[in-house]
Design a protein around this nucleic acid. Structure first.
Length: 858
RNA sequence: GCCGAAGUGGCGGAAUGGCAGACGCGGCGGUCUCAAAAACCGUUGAGGGAGACCUCGUGCGGGUUCGACUCCCGCCUUCGGCACCA
């Protein structure tokens, strides 16, 4: 029977059968280990999915399918990160209601995902904008509020004037709004925060316990930004005020020749001398007019003003001038620094410009004269009174003790992490469940009144003066105080989208619970997640927030674990060829742009030499998107799966190359042909063989069991490209065997069954089709995963490599258990070894049994 | 500047310190065909040789080792992230 891979005829058929059989329903059978595999839940955008997104969903599906066959209860669920700014902006642009829009987009995503046969248990689908879901987001908010982990405070918040909302620090990239790229302004606003800073140290420490890519861990550590240093006071000469400074380099204190206050520092007003007031006020005005983007530009020349005051050096007693300068930030440390121009680049630049003394107090260990500033901690102190001669490290300890003993300072750990700003002045989010009452103040909405429903409105565009559009809806705003029953007003800010994604993975464990957010035993069973898969762009935001919520819920006794994601994997991107042309003289390019993007149609019509191609991420705006349905139609779902798995290691960026997709089609065709051609000779009862086997059969079995072991390991380690490669090798070897051994063979029967099962997680439609062609009922997903037989892995004859002076000179085929001495003798018998040793004396022979003999001679 | 990842044929990539280039794409030659496509068979790192074979070869320079793509030291390049955080 001649078979071919005919995706159009088999794939939809099998997807229908899987659905009819409810095949992907989550099993919770006792006695089985559990496996919770989850891709980051997506925001369903109107652009739909591209084959690029599948680089996440296909591998997660492969591992979940394999675990299921390996006897696990598998949780593999999907839902929609539907709340948040992206959805709302899209709704505004399209003049649609976000509720209906998001529902429709989610349906599209679901359909697109189904085209590649992904095995989700859709009965667990969740949507974060559904009241059933956000009721519990609000419930968690209230828990955090009760524990003092959610609070309202005045803060110079990051304000995006285009999106008309505040942003969390994590959402500001280089002073620009992460969504629209508008420079962010500082605006004094009353905002809601989560006290993530309470967890800074634990968020660092617990990274040790998770299996995540090292780069992501480092990014989190850097974001939290622990620095160990000292905090101590400098008294203002002739005043009762003192400046508190933080430094990590107290060892350089004798080199401090001035102090700097941030323009926002409250002491500036109080200690500026009368003659300097006008100048300082002018400087402060200029500084506050700068956007963050400008202020943080490292290339900018240092600016600042002497404020007329002097601070007394706590060690030497000298008077040092105090400046105000915008390179010191109010938001970090104490907003004031001791400046050490000799050993800090920024202080050095400032001192050079303002003609301030530069005093070297650290000398490199080897005493060589370095150019200043010398910022390394590898050195010894000089010009530092009794501390001279100490290493930097020792000096840091002793000097900190020195200030501690005098009660003017202490050792101090600072973190760069700030509290997580959660309130948004936008419509499309979970309302913050708080009521403001003139009498009772800030009152939480009682759990019985949850959810605080987001009202359906005609107009939901952002309000004015930094207020949410909800503030205009009287019916929503006016309420009664849950505490005293009097008139009160609802909080009108909503929560940013990251609130939803900080706990949705818990809801998947118990998605339709009407009584509580989740049953403890269900979360206890399924969590933590055994494999969390998504893009590295969430390295900081989502992953940090979700870890924080998990720890907070743990501390409240609601969860039994402190880390939600035991294993994290980042998939590589998929790039598509994208046409550009060079601009004419009267067209300008944005920074970083190499040309003007073209559509494929435009590119086809232009002369070839005017078009150049670059690899770009697939996106609707670039017009280079290949959708899952297009690709599945043209090549087949299994071919797409095999292609994306095989093209490169999972975490690596790949380039969409259609010839190589064709390669995947060819591979599947070879498998179909192999199986089809064998059907007339196939014996399903191959296990009851009589035990007599030929050498060829022994070789085939060896290869087969070796492949079982390899594919099993590779899938577990996300090394899908080598898993596919070894299945290709096996297929090739089986084809050769079939050609040589016409007629039936138990070894080939066994190999055929096993090949199909090993292929099943990777190419499930094809596997089920072939399985049924062999006359078998049911689905491969319900079959047992093949086991490598250790007896089949050992060989009684092995090939040994023979080297002379490390160079390959020959091979010998010997019994696997041959002794070292015999191996040496066998190696020396090789003809090529003879000629290579001509005129040389043997000095040494290295024998690694089972591998190599290396003869050292000269 | 700091942190992270990575540099291997024409291309994507493979290799517990032990035969570099598995597997695939592309190329070349062939079979089939009126022809083409598809499929199949062979071949394909570079240089040399009629040939069996020989020499070189994993970004660069050193080192450790019987043996290095792999480990160590010093550079270079690319990509990703952070960046006036004291």
């Amino acid at each position: 029977m001649s078979l071919r891979y005919e995706p159009a005829e088999i794939e939809q058929k099998w997807r229908d059968r899987w659905a009819d059989a409810d095949l992907f329903k989550t099993l919770e059978e006792p006695g089985r280990p559990k496996f919770n595999g989850l891709p980051f839940f997506p925001y369903p955008s109107g652009a739909g999915l591209s084959v690029g997104h599948l680089r996440n969903y296909i591998p997660t599906d492969v591992i979940c399918r394999a675990k299921r066959m390996q006897g696990h209860n598998v949780l593999h669920a999907m839902g929609w990160d539907a709340f948040g700014l992206p959805a709302e902006m899209e709704a505004i642009n399209k003049k649609r209601n976000p509720r209906g829009m998001v529902k429709e987009y989610a349906e599209t995503y679901k359909r697109q995902l189904s085209y590649v046969g992904v095995s989700y248990d859709w009965s667990r689908e969740v949507n974060s904008s559904d009241p059933e879901f956000y009721k519990w987001t609000q419930w968690i908010f209230l828990l955090l509020f009760e524990k003092g982990l959610a609070y309202q405070g005045d803060y110079p918040a990051n304000w995006c004037p285009k999106d008309k909302t505040v942003l969390a620090n994590e959402e500001v990239e280089g002073g620009l709004c992460w969504r629209c790229g508008t420079p962010v302004e500082k605006k004094m606003l009353k905002q809601w925060f989560f006290k993530i800073t309470d967890y800074a140290q634990r968020l660092i420490d617990d990274l040790e316990a998770v299996n995540w890519p090292e780069g992501i861990k480092t990014q989190q550590r850097n974001w939290i930004g622990r620095s160990d240093g000292s905090e101590f006071y400098w008294k203002i000469d002739g005043s009762d005020h003192s400046i508190k400074v933080f430094t990590t380099r107290i060892d350089t204190v004798y080199g401090s020749t001035f102090c700097v206050l941030s323009p926002e520092h409250p002491l500036v007003e109080q200690i500026t001398t009368a003659d300097k007031r006008a100048e300082v006020a002018a400087y402060k005005a200029t500084a506050s007019a700068l956007s963050d983007q400008d202020r943080l530009a490292t290339t900018r020349e240092k600016t600042g003003v002497f404020i007329g005051a002097f601070a007394v050096h706590p060690f030497s007693g000298e008077n040092t001038p105090v400046y105000v300068a915008d390179y010191v930030l109010m938001g970090y440390g104490t907003g004031a620094i001791m400046a050490v121009p000799a050993h800090d680049t920024r202080d050095f630049e400032f001192a050079e410009k303002f003609g301030i003394q530069i005093r070297q107090v650290i000398e490199p260990a080897d005493g060589s004269i370095e150019e200043l500033p010398f910022v390394s901690e590898e050195g010894r102190l000089i010009n530092s009174a009794e501390f001279s001669g100490l290493s930097c490290e020792d000096a840091q300890d002793q000097m900190t003790q020195w200030v501690e003993a005098r009660g003017t300072g202490k050792g101090k750990v600072n973190y760069r992490l700030r509290d997580w700003l959660i309130s948004r002045q936008r419509y499309w989010g979970a309302p913050i469940p708080i009521v403001h009452c003139d009498k009772c103040g800030v009152v939480p909405v009682p759990e019985s009144q949850l959810p605080v429903l987001l009202p359906d409105v005609e107009s939901y565009e952002p309000g004015h003066n930094g207020e949410s559009p909800l503030a205009d809806i009287a019916d929503f705003v006016n309420t009664t105080c849950p505490s005293c029953g009097g008139d009160a007003k609802r909080e009108t800010d909503t929560m940013g989208g990251f609130a939803c994604s900080s706990w949705y993975f818990l809801r998947f464990c118990d998605p339709h619970n009407n009584e509580e957010a989740f049953a403890r035993d269900k979360v206890g069973y399924w969590m933590p997640i055994d494999c969390y898969v998504g893009g590295a762009e969430h390295a900081v935001m989502h992953l940090l927030y979700a870890r924080f919520w998990t720890k907070a819920l743990h501390d409240m006794g609601i969860l039994d674990f402190v880390e939600p994601f035991a294993v994290l994997k980042n998939q590589g991107m998929l790039l598509a060829p994208t046409p550009f042309r060079n601009p004419n003289e009267n067209e300008t390019l944005r920074v970083g742009e190499a040309g003007i993007m073209l559509s494929y149609e435009e590119a086809a019509q232009m002369p070839k030499d005017q078009v150049f191609w670059r690899w770009e991420k697939m996106s609707k705006s670039k017009g280079n998107v290949v959708t899952p349905e297009d690709a599945a139609m043209r090549y087949g779902a299994d071919a797409i799966r095999i292609y994306e798995l095989f093209e490169a290691p999972f975490e690596q960026t790949i380039q969409w190359t259609e010839e190589r997709v064709q390669g995947a089609v060819r591979f599947l065709n070879r498998v179909f042909r192999l199986v089809g051609d064998h059907i007339p000779n196939y014996n399903a009862d191959w296990r009851s063989s009589n035990g007599e086997i030929t050498d060829d059969e022994r070789d085939l079995r060896h290869k087969l069991h070796h492949t079982i072991a390899k594919v099993t390991d590779d899938i577990a380690e996300f090394s899908f490209n080598t898993a596919v490669a070894s299945l290709m090798e096996l297929t090739n070897e089986m084809s050769d065997f079939a050609k040589k051994n016409k007629g039936g063979s138990n070894a080939l029967d066994e190999a055929i069954d096993t090949l199909i099962l090993l292929l099943a997680p990777l190419a499930p439609h094809s596997a089920d089709e072939l399985w049924s062609k062999l006359g078998k009922a049911g689905f491969t997903l319900n079959e047992k995963w093949p086991q490598a037989d250790p007896a089949m892995l050992v060989r009684n004859e092995v090939q040994i490599v023979v080297q002379v002076n490390g160079k390959l000179r020959g091979h010998i085929l010997v019994p696997a258990d041959m002794e070292k001495l015999e191996l040496e003798r066998a190696a020396l018998d090789c003809e090529k070894v003879h000629s290579a040793l001509e005129g040389k004396t043997i000095r040494k022979i290295i024998v690694v049994p089972g591998r190599i003999v290396n003869i050292v001679a000269n």
